[in-house]
Amino acid sequence: MAHKNPWPDEGNTGHIWDEDLRELDNPPPLWWMLSFYAGFVSIIFYTLYYPSIPLADGHTKGLSGWTQVSEYHESVKELNNWRERKFAWQEEQMSALSVEEILKDDELRTYAVKTSKMLFGDYCAACHGASGQGNPNFPVLVDDDWLWGGKVSQIVTSITTGRIGYMPARGLMGNLTDSEISEVAGYVLALSKGKGEEPAVAAGKAVFAKGMCIACHGPKGKPFAPAGAANLTDKIWRFSADKDDIIRTITYGVNVKKNGVLIAHTRSGVMPSFKERLPNAEVNIKRLAVYVHELGGGL
């Protein structure tokens, strides 16, 4: 940098390189400088007004007391208030009418279905799948096979009280041998294919009677009324259509307990009661029942 300044009057800063390359002192326009300073002022304002400086255990709270999450909660509150006002009539009807009446009414049914998706996702999807498609060993809700009945009122009962299936191990008396179980499993498989009267499975049919399976599953493999026992004549299997799986179910039963503890290998099938679990259960159970009924398999 040169130390002599041959251009003292042109307003340079005195910084001169390579003989004539020099830095001029051209201040930015006034408006620019003013907004620059205004920027500083607003930084101070923001720092004081809003949560800003991170500390070892948290951060400064700011004069306004504003937080992002409180703003979010306020928005949610506002939205919920809006919903309450907008759908007041529907909600009133939902609590006043019976579930059958709701199902019959086009508008209310649509309303119930559309307002249930999140509830179903929160409370039902863990076992029954996000769209009611079921999970291994958990019932499918989109088909038309119902252990406890597919009428909407029966669905309400299932949700309200919960359901605990029970199937004794080795027949009602607990006296079936392994070979008898294998035979009856073959019979049950044939039943599902509509071949229950064929001579090949006659021995299994005899075991079906001997093991008192008919007590729950009905003399023809079809229960008289839906009370938790599977309909063995249809194509749908509560657990699996695999013969080994059927043998396991018959051998160890469903929810079989010994001294208050489930025995090994027994099938577990428990639907809890949602009366206490659901918020606003009285209306929401109706809502969910309509939703489940409309999934595609309601009777």
Binding site: S131, V140, V142, D143, N231, K235
Partner: peptide, 18 residues
């Protein structure tokens, strides 16, 4: 077309799509 599930087996063996 409903994707979950793509199809449903009904009790009489028919397949249902939603």
């Amino acid at each position: 077309h409903e994707r979950a599930p793509l199809f449903v087996l009904m009790s009489d063996g028919t397949i249902q799509n939603k």
